[in-house]
């Protein structure tokens, strides 16, 4: 099982993954938290949720998170898939989940997830990371915290440079 890193209260920590990632060809396990594809969520989600199970959804980079709007308040987790390092669609998905759809559960980066993306991911609202490069929480935190300043507002709480400048001037 790959390391799971969670961003909690500004700290990157190793975490146990309580979710079972259910591939489309596999049956849903009888108990425990699960991550399903969007299609499977639509088919099985209601039943699992009414049984009190924790349910997450796995969104491919060509699927739109707006499709989740109705289900989101009941979901524990949205896993956004990076099929390739260079496929940047999940960054938009994460921002929309946080800033437009108001999702407060875990947004997890899965797939081709490397530490070079850590800073971008955190800024877009990801708080769960399954690094494919075996990065440790310390290495991940080092990469994510590389830049002392950010130039624009995003889905995180970091103050962009123009706010830093404005407060310096006070």
């Amino acid at each position: 099982m790959p390391t799971l890193i969670r961003l909690i209260d500004g700290r990157y920590e190793a975490a146990d993954d309580v979710f079972t990632d259910v591939a489309d060809e596999d049956v849903t396990p009888p108990e425990g938290a699960v991550i399903l594809s969007l299609a499977r969520l639509q088919a099985e989600g209601d039943g699992l949720l009414s049984a009190g199970r924790q349910v997450g959804v796995r969104i491919q980079s060509d699927e739109e998170v707006e499709a989740l709007a109705y289900d989101l308040p009941r979901l524990a987790l949205v896993a956004l898939v990076f099929p390739k390092y260079r496929d940047g669609r999940a960054y938009t998905s994460a921002r929309l989940l946080r800033q437009r759809l108001g999702f407060t559960g875990e947004v997890r980066a899965v797939g081709d997830v490397l530490r070079e993306q850590a800073g971008f991911m955190a800024r877009c609202g990801f708080d769960g990371f399954a690094p494919a490069d075996g990065a440790s929480p310390a290495e991940w935190a080092h990469a994510a915290g590389r830049f002392r300043h950010v130039y624009q507002r995003a889905a995180d709480a970091r103050a962009p440079v123009f706010e830093e400048r404005a407060s310096d001037g006070l």
Binding site: Y85, R86, D87, G88, Y91, T92, R95, G119, F120, M121, R123, C124, F147, V150, Y151, Q152, A154, V161, F162
Partner: peptide, 13 residues
Amino acid sequence: RQWSTLHPEFSFL
């Protein structure tokens, strides 16, 4: 320049 520098959402277009 400032807005686009290491833009978190638009660096992997």
